[in-house]
Design a protein around this nucleic acid. Structure first.
Lengths: 220, 220
DNA sequence: CATTGTGAACTCATTCACAGCG
DNA sequence: CGCTGTGAATGAGTTCACAATG
Protein backbone atom coordinates (compact mmCIF):
# COMPACT_ATOMS: atom_id res chain seq x y z
CA UNK A 1 0.00 0.00 0.00
CA UNK A 2 1.31 3.42 -0.98
CA UNK A 3 1.48 6.60 1.02
CA UNK A 4 -1.35 9.00 0.10
CA UNK A 5 0.76 11.36 -1.93
CA UNK A 6 -0.87 13.84 -4.23
CA UNK A 7 -2.96 12.09 -6.84
CA UNK A 8 -3.55 13.80 -10.20
CA UNK A 9 -7.15 14.52 -11.12
CA UNK A 10 -6.29 12.97 -14.47
CA UNK A 11 -5.73 9.71 -12.62
CA UNK A 12 -9.18 9.85 -11.04
CA UNK A 13 -10.70 10.60 -14.42
CA UNK A 14 -8.99 7.56 -15.88
CA UNK A 15 -10.02 5.31 -13.00
CA UNK A 16 -13.59 6.20 -13.84
CA UNK A 17 -12.89 5.32 -17.44
CA UNK A 18 -11.25 1.99 -16.53
CA UNK A 19 -14.24 1.10 -14.45
CA UNK A 20 -16.58 1.65 -17.36
CA UNK A 21 -14.54 -0.59 -19.60
CA UNK A 22 -14.29 -3.25 -16.90
CA UNK A 23 -18.06 -3.28 -16.59
CA UNK A 24 -18.34 -3.79 -20.28
CA UNK A 25 -15.74 -6.56 -20.23
CA UNK A 26 -17.42 -8.30 -17.32
CA UNK A 27 -20.74 -8.12 -19.14
CA UNK A 28 -19.03 -9.76 -22.12
CA UNK A 29 -18.01 -12.66 -19.90
CA UNK A 30 -14.32 -11.92 -19.27
CA UNK A 31 -12.78 -12.79 -15.91
CA UNK A 32 -9.21 -11.55 -16.30
CA UNK A 33 -7.56 -8.53 -17.90
CA UNK A 34 -3.99 -7.38 -18.40
CA UNK A 35 -2.94 -3.74 -18.24
CA UNK A 36 -1.98 -4.02 -21.87
CA UNK A 37 -5.42 -5.15 -23.08
CA UNK A 38 -7.23 -2.63 -20.92
CA UNK A 39 -4.88 0.10 -22.12
CA UNK A 40 -5.74 -0.75 -25.70
CA UNK A 41 -9.45 -0.35 -24.97
CA UNK A 42 -9.00 2.87 -23.02
CA UNK A 43 -6.51 4.30 -25.50
CA UNK A 44 -3.86 4.94 -22.87
CA UNK A 45 -0.39 3.61 -22.09
CA UNK A 46 -0.27 0.30 -20.14
CA UNK A 47 2.25 1.76 -17.68
CA UNK A 48 -0.21 4.57 -17.06
CA UNK A 49 -2.81 2.11 -15.86
CA UNK A 50 -0.38 0.34 -13.56
CA UNK A 51 0.86 3.66 -12.20
CA UNK A 52 -2.68 4.91 -11.62
CA UNK A 53 -3.59 1.75 -9.72
CA UNK A 54 -0.28 1.88 -7.89
CA UNK A 55 -1.38 5.03 -6.08
CA UNK A 56 -3.99 2.98 -4.25
CA UNK A 57 -2.50 -0.47 -3.80
CA UNK A 58 -1.52 -3.68 -5.54
CA UNK A 59 -4.47 -5.24 -7.24
CA UNK A 60 -2.89 -7.50 -9.84
CA UNK A 61 -1.06 -10.81 -9.99
CA UNK A 62 2.33 -10.71 -11.68
CA UNK A 63 2.51 -12.84 -14.75
CA UNK A 64 -1.28 -13.11 -14.84
CA UNK A 65 -3.09 -9.77 -14.78
CA UNK A 66 -6.05 -8.42 -12.88
CA UNK A 67 -9.17 -10.23 -11.75
CA UNK A 68 -11.89 -8.27 -13.46
CA UNK A 69 -14.48 -8.47 -10.74
CA UNK A 70 -12.01 -7.67 -7.96
CA UNK A 71 -10.52 -4.73 -9.79
CA UNK A 72 -13.93 -3.30 -10.54
CA UNK A 73 -14.90 -3.54 -6.90
CA UNK A 74 -11.67 -1.86 -5.84
CA UNK A 75 -12.18 0.95 -8.33
CA UNK A 76 -15.72 1.53 -7.10
CA UNK A 77 -14.38 1.67 -3.58
CA UNK A 78 -11.65 4.14 -4.52
CA UNK A 79 -14.08 6.33 -6.44
CA UNK A 80 -16.56 6.09 -3.57
CA UNK A 81 -19.31 4.99 -5.91
CA UNK A 82 -20.06 1.83 -3.95
CA UNK A 83 -22.77 3.80 -2.17
CA UNK A 84 -25.68 6.11 -2.92
CA UNK A 85 -25.35 9.88 -3.33
CA UNK A 86 -28.20 12.34 -2.97
CA UNK A 87 -28.30 15.27 -5.35
CA UNK A 88 -30.34 18.44 -5.74
CA UNK A 89 -30.79 20.27 -9.01
CA UNK A 90 -31.59 23.95 -9.47
CA UNK A 91 -32.98 25.32 -12.72
CA UNK A 92 -35.64 23.11 -14.25
CA UNK A 93 -35.39 24.23 -17.86
CA UNK A 94 -34.77 21.99 -20.82
CA UNK A 95 -31.40 20.74 -19.65
CA UNK A 96 -32.47 20.30 -16.05
CA UNK A 97 -35.54 18.33 -17.07
CA UNK A 98 -33.55 16.07 -19.32
CA UNK A 99 -31.01 15.33 -16.59
CA UNK A 100 -33.82 14.49 -14.19
CA UNK A 101 -35.25 12.01 -16.66
CA UNK A 102 -31.96 10.32 -17.40
CA UNK A 103 -31.74 6.84 -15.90
CA UNK A 104 -28.00 7.03 -16.32
CA UNK A 105 -27.36 8.59 -12.92
CA UNK A 106 -29.80 6.55 -10.87
CA UNK A 107 -28.20 3.42 -12.29
CA UNK A 108 -24.88 4.49 -10.82
CA UNK A 109 -26.11 5.54 -7.43
CA UNK A 110 -26.46 9.25 -8.11
CA UNK A 111 -30.02 10.15 -7.20
CA UNK A 112 -31.84 13.41 -7.65
CA UNK A 113 -33.92 13.79 -4.51
CA UNK A 114 -34.94 17.44 -4.91
CA UNK A 115 -35.55 19.86 -7.78
CA UNK A 116 -35.69 23.64 -7.44
CA UNK A 117 -36.62 26.64 -9.52
CA UNK A 118 -37.46 30.25 -8.83
CA UNK A 119 -40.10 30.54 -11.54
CA UNK A 120 -43.46 30.87 -9.80
CA UNK A 121 -45.12 29.06 -12.72
CA UNK A 122 -42.93 26.01 -12.25
CA UNK A 123 -42.97 25.72 -8.47
CA UNK A 124 -45.36 23.02 -7.33
CA UNK A 125 -45.45 21.24 -10.68
CA UNK A 126 -44.80 17.51 -10.75
CA UNK A 127 -42.04 16.09 -12.89
CA UNK A 128 -41.99 12.80 -14.82
CA UNK A 129 -39.38 11.52 -12.37
CA UNK A 130 -41.89 11.92 -9.54
CA UNK A 131 -40.35 14.97 -7.88
CA UNK A 132 -42.25 18.17 -7.29
CA UNK A 133 -40.47 21.41 -8.15
CA UNK A 134 -39.69 23.37 -5.00
CA UNK A 135 -38.99 27.04 -4.44
CA UNK A 136 -35.26 27.76 -4.14
CA UNK A 137 -36.17 29.50 -0.89
CA UNK A 138 -36.62 26.01 0.54
CA UNK A 139 -33.22 24.83 -0.59
CA UNK A 140 -31.31 25.14 2.64
CA UNK A 141 -33.92 23.38 4.73
CA UNK A 142 -34.38 20.61 2.15
CA UNK A 143 -30.66 19.98 1.82
CA UNK A 144 -30.42 19.42 5.53
CA UNK A 145 -33.50 17.22 5.71
CA UNK A 146 -32.51 14.96 2.80
CA UNK A 147 -28.76 14.95 3.46
CA UNK A 148 -28.00 16.24 0.00
CA UNK A 149 -24.29 16.16 -0.80
CA UNK A 150 -24.10 17.20 -4.44
CA UNK A 151 -25.65 20.28 -6.03
CA UNK A 152 -26.32 20.51 -9.75
CA UNK A 153 -26.72 23.92 -11.38
CA UNK A 154 -28.64 24.18 -14.64
CA UNK A 155 -29.77 27.78 -14.30
CA UNK A 156 -29.04 30.67 -16.65
CA UNK A 157 -25.51 31.99 -16.11
CA UNK A 158 -26.72 35.22 -14.51
CA UNK A 159 -27.91 33.47 -11.36
CA UNK A 160 -25.44 30.57 -11.25
CA UNK A 161 -23.16 32.21 -8.69
CA UNK A 162 -26.10 33.06 -6.46
CA UNK A 163 -27.23 29.44 -6.50
CA UNK A 164 -23.70 28.25 -5.83
CA UNK A 165 -23.56 30.55 -2.80
CA UNK A 166 -26.87 29.14 -1.65
CA UNK A 167 -25.47 25.61 -1.88
CA UNK A 168 -22.34 26.67 -0.03
CA UNK A 169 -24.39 28.26 2.69
CA UNK A 170 -26.31 24.99 2.99
CA UNK A 171 -23.04 23.07 3.41
CA UNK A 172 -23.29 21.34 0.06
CA UNK A 173 -19.66 21.22 -0.89
CA UNK A 174 -19.76 19.53 -4.24
CA UNK A 175 -21.19 21.32 -7.25
CA UNK A 176 -21.74 20.19 -10.80
CA UNK A 177 -22.12 23.36 -12.81
CA UNK A 178 -23.65 23.34 -16.29
CA UNK A 179 -24.00 27.09 -16.67
CA UNK A 180 -21.38 28.69 -18.90
CA UNK A 181 -19.76 30.77 -16.19
CA UNK A 182 -17.08 30.01 -13.67
CA UNK A 183 -18.57 29.80 -10.23
CA UNK A 184 -16.26 30.91 -7.47
CA UNK A 185 -16.14 28.82 -4.35
CA UNK A 186 -13.83 28.35 -1.39
CA UNK A 187 -11.43 25.44 -1.59
CA UNK A 188 -13.65 23.55 0.84
CA UNK A 189 -16.07 23.12 -2.05
CA UNK A 190 -15.40 20.93 -5.05
CA UNK A 191 -16.71 22.34 -8.31
CA UNK A 192 -16.86 20.47 -11.60
CA UNK A 193 -17.86 22.44 -14.65
CA UNK A 194 -19.45 20.96 -17.72
CA UNK A 195 -19.14 23.64 -20.29
CA UNK A 196 -20.61 22.88 -23.67
CA UNK A 197 -19.57 26.14 -25.28
CA UNK A 198 -15.91 25.64 -24.42
CA UNK A 199 -15.96 22.20 -25.99
CA UNK A 200 -17.42 23.67 -29.17
CA UNK A 201 -14.77 26.39 -29.21
CA UNK A 202 -12.11 23.68 -28.96
CA UNK A 203 -13.62 21.79 -31.87
CA UNK A 204 -13.78 24.94 -33.98
CA UNK A 205 -10.16 25.68 -33.17
CA UNK A 206 -9.00 22.18 -34.01
CA UNK A 207 -11.01 22.05 -37.22
CA UNK A 208 -9.40 25.24 -38.38
CA UNK A 209 -5.84 24.91 -37.16
CA UNK A 210 -4.96 21.26 -37.19
CA UNK A 211 -5.15 20.92 -40.94
CA UNK A 212 -2.15 18.62 -40.84
CA UNK A 213 -4.23 15.99 -39.03
CA UNK A 214 -6.88 16.11 -41.74
CA UNK A 215 -4.80 14.13 -44.20
CA UNK A 216 -3.04 12.04 -41.58
CA UNK A 217 -3.77 8.34 -41.79
CA UNK A 218 -1.90 7.18 -38.72
CA UNK A 219 -3.76 5.87 -35.71
CA UNK A 220 -2.08 6.36 -32.33
CA UNK B 1 4.51 36.47 -34.45
CA UNK B 2 5.55 33.09 -33.07
CA UNK B 3 6.29 29.89 -34.91
CA UNK B 4 3.38 27.46 -34.77
CA UNK B 5 4.90 25.16 -32.20
CA UNK B 6 2.73 22.67 -30.42
CA UNK B 7 0.01 24.44 -28.44
CA UNK B 8 -1.45 22.73 -25.36
CA UNK B 9 -5.16 21.98 -25.45
CA UNK B 10 -5.24 23.54 -22.00
CA UNK B 11 -4.23 26.80 -23.63
CA UNK B 12 -7.13 26.65 -26.08
CA UNK B 13 -9.51 25.90 -23.23
CA UNK B 14 -8.25 28.94 -21.37
CA UNK B 15 -8.47 31.18 -24.43
CA UNK B 16 -12.14 30.28 -24.58
CA UNK B 17 -12.44 31.17 -20.92
CA UNK B 18 -10.62 34.49 -21.36
CA UNK B 19 -12.96 35.37 -24.17
CA UNK B 20 -16.00 34.81 -22.00
CA UNK B 21 -14.64 37.06 -19.30
CA UNK B 22 -13.69 39.70 -21.84
CA UNK B 23 -17.24 39.71 -23.17
CA UNK B 24 -18.49 40.22 -19.67
CA UNK B 25 -16.00 43.03 -19.03
CA UNK B 26 -16.85 44.74 -22.30
CA UNK B 27 -20.53 44.55 -21.43
CA UNK B 28 -19.68 46.18 -18.11
CA UNK B 29 -18.12 49.10 -19.98
CA UNK B 30 -14.40 48.39 -19.59
CA UNK B 31 -12.02 49.25 -22.41
CA UNK B 32 -8.68 48.04 -21.06
CA UNK B 33 -7.52 45.04 -19.07
CA UNK B 34 -4.21 43.88 -17.62
CA UNK B 35 -3.12 40.26 -17.48
CA UNK B 36 -3.17 40.55 -13.73
CA UNK B 37 -6.80 41.66 -13.51
CA UNK B 38 -7.97 39.13 -16.07
CA UNK B 39 -6.01 36.41 -14.26
CA UNK B 40 -7.80 37.25 -11.06
CA UNK B 41 -11.17 36.85 -12.75
CA UNK B 42 -10.22 33.62 -14.50
CA UNK B 43 -8.47 32.23 -11.46
CA UNK B 44 -5.22 31.59 -13.27
CA UNK B 45 -1.67 32.92 -13.09
CA UNK B 46 -1.05 36.23 -14.94
CA UNK B 47 2.05 34.81 -16.63
CA UNK B 48 -0.13 31.98 -17.86
CA UNK B 49 -2.32 34.42 -19.74
CA UNK B 50 0.63 36.21 -21.30
CA UNK B 51 2.21 32.88 -22.26
CA UNK B 52 -1.05 31.62 -23.78
CA UNK B 53 -1.42 34.77 -25.86
CA UNK B 54 2.25 34.67 -26.72
CA UNK B 55 1.70 31.51 -28.76
CA UNK B 56 -0.32 33.54 -31.22
CA UNK B 57 1.22 37.00 -31.28
CA UNK B 58 1.67 40.22 -29.34
CA UNK B 59 -1.65 41.76 -28.51
CA UNK B 60 -0.82 44.02 -25.60
CA UNK B 61 0.85 47.36 -24.99
CA UNK B 62 3.70 47.30 -22.48
CA UNK B 63 3.05 49.44 -19.49
CA UNK B 64 -0.63 49.66 -20.37
CA UNK B 65 -2.35 46.31 -20.88
CA UNK B 66 -4.69 44.93 -23.52
CA UNK B 67 -7.40 46.73 -25.42
CA UNK B 68 -10.46 44.75 -24.51
CA UNK B 69 -12.23 44.94 -27.84
CA UNK B 70 -9.10 44.15 -29.84
CA UNK B 71 -8.15 41.21 -27.67
CA UNK B 72 -11.62 39.77 -27.86
CA UNK B 73 -11.58 40.00 -31.64
CA UNK B 74 -8.17 38.33 -31.77
CA UNK B 75 -9.33 35.52 -29.51
CA UNK B 76 -12.38 34.92 -31.65
CA UNK B 77 -10.15 34.78 -34.70
CA UNK B 78 -7.76 32.34 -33.02
CA UNK B 79 -10.61 30.13 -31.84
CA UNK B 80 -12.23 30.35 -35.27
CA UNK B 81 -15.51 31.42 -33.76
CA UNK B 82 -15.69 34.58 -35.85
CA UNK B 83 -17.83 32.63 -38.30
CA UNK B 84 -20.83 30.31 -38.36
CA UNK B 85 -20.60 26.54 -37.87
CA UNK B 86 -23.24 24.06 -39.00
CA UNK B 87 -23.97 21.13 -36.74
CA UNK B 88 -26.03 17.96 -36.91
CA UNK B 89 -27.35 16.13 -33.88
CA UNK B 90 -28.24 12.45 -33.65
CA UNK B 91 -30.46 11.07 -30.90
CA UNK B 92 -33.43 13.26 -30.14
CA UNK B 93 -34.17 12.15 -26.61
CA UNK B 94 -34.38 14.41 -23.59
CA UNK B 95 -30.83 15.66 -23.79
CA UNK B 96 -30.89 16.10 -27.56
CA UNK B 97 -34.11 18.05 -27.42
CA UNK B 98 -32.82 20.33 -24.72
CA UNK B 99 -29.65 21.08 -26.65
CA UNK B 100 -31.70 21.91 -29.73
CA UNK B 101 -33.75 24.38 -27.75
CA UNK B 102 -30.78 26.07 -26.14
CA UNK B 103 -30.18 29.56 -27.51
CA UNK B 104 -26.69 29.41 -26.10
CA UNK B 105 -25.15 27.82 -29.19
CA UNK B 106 -26.95 29.85 -31.82
CA UNK B 107 -25.81 32.99 -30.04
CA UNK B 108 -22.19 31.93 -30.55
CA UNK B 109 -22.47 30.88 -34.16
CA UNK B 110 -22.96 27.17 -33.59
CA UNK B 111 -26.15 26.25 -35.43
CA UNK B 112 -28.00 22.97 -35.48
CA UNK B 113 -29.16 22.59 -39.07
CA UNK B 114 -30.24 18.95 -38.95
CA UNK B 115 -31.59 16.53 -36.35
CA UNK B 116 -31.64 12.75 -36.71
CA UNK B 117 -33.08 9.74 -34.97
CA UNK B 118 -33.68 6.13 -35.86
CA UNK B 119 -36.97 5.83 -33.97
CA UNK B 120 -39.72 5.50 -36.55
CA UNK B 121 -42.13 7.29 -34.21
CA UNK B 122 -39.90 10.36 -34.06
CA UNK B 123 -38.91 10.63 -37.71
CA UNK B 124 -40.92 13.34 -39.47
CA UNK B 125 -41.92 15.09 -36.27
CA UNK B 126 -41.32 18.83 -36.01
CA UNK B 127 -39.25 20.27 -33.20
CA UNK B 128 -39.73 23.57 -31.34
CA UNK B 129 -36.56 24.85 -32.99
CA UNK B 130 -38.18 24.45 -36.39
CA UNK B 131 -36.25 21.40 -37.57
CA UNK B 132 -37.92 18.19 -38.65
CA UNK B 133 -36.43 14.97 -37.33
CA UNK B 134 -34.82 13.00 -40.15
CA UNK B 135 -33.98 9.34 -40.49
CA UNK B 136 -30.29 8.64 -39.78
CA UNK B 137 -30.29 6.88 -43.13
CA UNK B 138 -30.36 10.36 -44.65
CA UNK B 139 -27.39 11.57 -42.63
CA UNK B 140 -24.67 11.24 -45.22
CA UNK B 141 -26.62 13.00 -47.93
CA UNK B 142 -27.76 15.77 -45.58
CA UNK B 143 -24.28 16.41 -44.26
CA UNK B 144 -23.06 16.97 -47.77
CA UNK B 145 -25.99 19.15 -48.78
CA UNK B 146 -25.82 21.43 -45.72
CA UNK B 147 -22.02 21.45 -45.34
CA UNK B 148 -22.22 20.17 -41.80
CA UNK B 149 -18.89 20.26 -40.03
CA UNK B 150 -19.67 19.22 -36.47
CA UNK B 151 -21.61 16.14 -35.35
CA UNK B 152 -23.25 15.91 -31.95
CA UNK B 153 -24.06 12.49 -30.50
CA UNK B 154 -26.81 12.22 -27.88
CA UNK B 155 -27.79 8.62 -28.51
CA UNK B 156 -27.71 5.73 -26.05
CA UNK B 157 -24.16 4.42 -25.62
CA UNK B 158 -24.86 1.19 -27.47
CA UNK B 159 -25.17 2.94 -30.82
CA UNK B 160 -22.78 5.86 -30.27
CA UNK B 161 -19.88 4.23 -32.10
CA UNK B 162 -22.10 3.36 -35.04
CA UNK B 163 -23.21 6.98 -35.32
CA UNK B 164 -19.64 8.18 -35.00
CA UNK B 165 -18.68 5.88 -37.87
CA UNK B 166 -21.56 7.28 -39.88
CA UNK B 167 -20.27 10.81 -39.29
CA UNK B 168 -16.75 9.76 -40.20
CA UNK B 169 -17.99 8.15 -43.38
CA UNK B 170 -19.76 11.43 -44.19
CA UNK B 171 -16.52 13.36 -43.74
CA UNK B 172 -17.66 15.09 -40.58
CA UNK B 173 -14.42 15.21 -38.66
CA UNK B 174 -15.44 16.91 -35.46
CA UNK B 175 -17.63 15.10 -32.97
CA UNK B 176 -19.13 16.24 -29.70
CA UNK B 177 -20.04 13.07 -27.87
CA UNK B 178 -22.44 13.08 -24.94
CA UNK B 179 -22.88 9.34 -24.66
CA UNK B 180 -20.95 7.74 -21.81
CA UNK B 181 -18.66 5.66 -23.97
CA UNK B 182 -15.38 6.44 -25.67
CA UNK B 183 -15.89 6.65 -29.38
CA UNK B 184 -12.91 5.55 -31.38
CA UNK B 185 -11.96 7.63 -34.38
CA UNK B 186 -8.91 8.11 -36.59
CA UNK B 187 -6.66 11.04 -35.72
CA UNK B 188 -8.13 12.93 -38.65
CA UNK B 189 -11.27 13.34 -36.57
CA UNK B 190 -11.46 15.53 -33.49
CA UNK B 191 -13.60 14.10 -30.71
CA UNK B 192 -14.66 15.98 -27.60
CA UNK B 193 -16.44 14.01 -24.93
CA UNK B 194 -18.80 15.49 -22.42
CA UNK B 195 -19.19 12.81 -19.85
CA UNK B 196 -21.52 13.55 -17.01
CA UNK B 197 -20.94 10.29 -15.17
CA UNK B 198 -17.19 10.80 -15.02
CA UNK B 199 -17.67 14.25 -13.50
CA UNK B 200 -19.92 12.78 -10.85
CA UNK B 201 -17.39 10.06 -10.10
CA UNK B 202 -14.77 12.77 -9.61
CA UNK B 203 -17.01 14.66 -7.20
CA UNK B 204 -17.73 11.50 -5.23
CA UNK B 205 -14.01 10.79 -5.02
CA UNK B 206 -13.15 14.28 -3.91
CA UNK B 207 -15.94 14.40 -1.36
CA UNK B 208 -14.71 11.21 0.19
CA UNK B 209 -10.93 11.56 -0.02
CA UNK B 210 -10.14 15.21 0.25
CA UNK B 211 -11.34 15.56 3.78
CA UNK B 212 -8.52 17.97 4.54
CA UNK B 213 -10.16 20.51 2.27
CA UNK B 214 -13.43 20.25 4.16
CA UNK B 215 -12.20 22.24 7.11
CA UNK B 216 -9.90 24.48 5.08
CA UNK B 217 -10.85 28.14 5.16
CA UNK B 218 -8.19 29.45 2.84
CA UNK B 219 -9.01 30.75 -0.58
CA UNK B 220 -7.32 29.48 -3.73
C1' DC C 1 7.90 -16.60 -18.08
C1' DA C 2 4.30 -13.25 -18.69
C1' DT C 3 2.85 -9.46 -16.39
C1' DT C 4 2.85 -6.45 -12.47
C1' DG C 5 4.87 -2.65 -9.74
C1' DT C 6 7.98 1.17 -9.64
C1' DG C 7 12.28 4.23 -9.66
C1' DA C 8 14.39 6.89 -13.20
C1' DA C 9 14.14 9.41 -17.45
C1' DC C 10 11.66 12.13 -20.06
C1' DT C 11 8.11 15.19 -21.86
C1' DC C 12 4.95 18.65 -21.27
C1' DA C 13 2.89 22.58 -18.67
C1' DT C 14 3.15 26.24 -15.37
C1' DT C 15 5.39 29.81 -12.86
C1' DC C 16 9.19 32.84 -12.01
C1' DA C 17 11.89 36.65 -12.86
C1' DC C 18 13.39 40.14 -15.41
C1' DA C 19 14.64 42.34 -19.83
C1' DG C 20 12.21 45.12 -23.19
C1' DC C 21 9.46 48.82 -24.27
C1' DG C 22 5.55 52.11 -24.75
C1' DC D 1 7.22 53.66 -14.37
C1' DG D 2 4.13 49.73 -15.28
C1' DC D 3 2.93 46.00 -17.73
C1' DT D 4 3.94 42.96 -21.51
C1' DG D 5 6.65 39.26 -23.58
C1' DT D 6 9.71 35.47 -22.87
C1' DG D 7 13.86 32.50 -21.61
C1' DA D 8 15.01 29.94 -17.65
C1' DA D 9 13.62 27.36 -13.61
C1' DT D 10 10.47 24.60 -11.60
C1' DG D 11 6.86 21.33 -11.20
C1' DA D 12 3.63 17.84 -12.71
C1' DG D 13 2.39 13.96 -15.37
C1' DT D 14 3.64 10.27 -18.55
C1' DT D 15 6.43 6.71 -20.40
C1' DC D 16 10.39 3.72 -20.17
C1' DA D 17 12.74 -0.07 -18.68
C1' DC D 18 13.53 -3.56 -15.76
C1' DA D 19 13.60 -5.86 -11.22
C1' DA D 20 10.27 -8.49 -8.59
C1' DT D 21 7.25 -12.43 -8.43
C1' DG D 22 3.16 -15.53 -8.50
Amino acid sequence: MKKTLKIPVATITRLSLYRRHLERLEFDGHRLISSEKLALLCQVNPAQIRKDLGYFGEFGVRGVGYDLRDLKRELKKILAVNREWSMAIVGIGNLGSSLLQSRNFQARGFNFVAAFDSDIDKIGKSLPCGLVILDVAELKETVKRLDIRIGVITTPPTVAQMIADLFLDSKVNAILNFSPVQVHAPSSCRVENIDLTIKLDILAYKLTHEQDYRTGMVRH
